Amino acid sequence: MRPLPEPSAQSLRLLFLFIFVMGVAPSPALTAGCPHGCVCDDQLLVVQCAGQELTRFPNDLPLATRQLIISNNRIGDLPPLQLNYLSDLVYLDCSNNSLTEISESTFGNLRKLAYLDLSFNTLLQIEDRTFGPLASLVMLRLTDNPGLGEIHSDAFSENVALQVLDVSRNNLTTLNISGLIALPALRSLGLSGNPWKCDCDTEDLCLWMNKLEGITADQSQKICYSPPELAGQRLSEVGMQLRADCHHGLGYWDYLFFIAIGFVIFSAGTVLRLTVAPGAEI
């Protein structure tokens, strides 16, 4: 696999221009009723609710909303029933809240969503197909969730438009990359600041990172946290060592296991033959 280039400032500007253009494209105006504590822009179809000490997802959001910003609040849940009415949403910033979980149903009808920020929350895990419905997702930020220790291998497998994924500064020790390898548009992958455990479970990630040197700007931060003999080394530097350590020949206990299995099969066959009447078909 050829190295994926780090996105340039120009490409990121184009991404946000794309989101902005989608936001100002002809669409029904926002309704006159704007949620309490929020500011609504009828021309840009933006609902701004940042920093309002909200503890719940805002009610009665205009259905024509294209950009929703609810960052810097204390919201603990994204209710699918309310969120999925916003089928024209292209930009959603939920950063710096108290979100603990999300699921496939959370974003079930947001097929136009291009930008999603879930950073600085309290997420614990990302389940199978969590982002599956987001067919247009281009940028996803999942940074700074200190309890996030598990991301399912198929969490992003259907996000074929995804270009920028950042899972930095979480509590990840391993990451199954099978779903990431298949993403045709991926250009940037942020992994720094996680307590990576460089063992056989992380071998594929380390080997992949060896091919992707330069993909992000914080290479020096993507280091092994354990075991002690590898602590401080870059993920990309230990891949070949792990391959050698994790694919050695059969050990003493492996041979004993095969011998025991063979003995059991032989004994079962012998007993069966002794218990079947002479001349009977086995």
Rank of each mutant, 00 (worst) to 15 (best):
I75G: 08
T174F: 11
S119P: 09
G232P: 10
P227Q: 05
L230M: 10
A280F: 10
V276S: 14
L242I: 02
A114V: 07
T31V: 06
I69N: 15
F266R: 15
S103L: 06
G251F: 04
F131W: 03
W196Q: 05
L162D: 01
S236N: 05
I259H: 09
L30W: 02
C38I: 08
A280R: 14
E104G: 06
K211T: 13
L207F: 01
P79K: 03
L140W: 03
V164H: 11
G193E: 04
I19H: 06
T173E: 12
V90C: 10
L124V: 13
P58T: 00
A260F: 15
L54V: 07
V167M: 14
L12I: 13
A50K: 01
N210I: 00
P80T: 07
L140A: 12
D93R: 12
G23D: 09
A280C: 10
P3R: 10
L186Q: 03
N171W: 02
I19S: 05
D93Y: 07
E203P: 08
A260H: 13
L4Y: 15
T130I: 04
S105P: 05
I69G: 07
V160Q: 09
G23K: 06
C224E: 04
L45F: 12
D42M: 00
G190K: 01
F257A: 15
A231L: 08
G269F: 12
L17A: 14
A64L: 07
G269N: 11
P278V: 11
E150P: 01
P58G: 03
P278F: 11
S168C: 02
D201H: 13
G108F: 08
F57G: 02
L140V: 06
A32V: 05
D166T: 04
T106K: 10
S226A: 13
N97Q: 10
L83F: 03
Y85N: 10
S87N: 05
D41W: 12
Q233F: 08
A277M: 13
I102P: 02
S27T: 05
G76D: 11
L92C: 03
L45I: 03
N194L: 08
Q241T: 11
L78W: 00
I265A: 15
L183M: 10
G269K: 08
D204C: 01
N59V: 08
N170F: 13
K211P: 00
L113T: 07
E281D: 12
G232Y: 06
C206Y: 00
H152M: 10
C246L: 00
L183V: 08
G37D: 03
Q82G: 08
S27V: 02
D199S: 02
C224T: 03
G179D: 07
N109Q: 13
S136N: 09
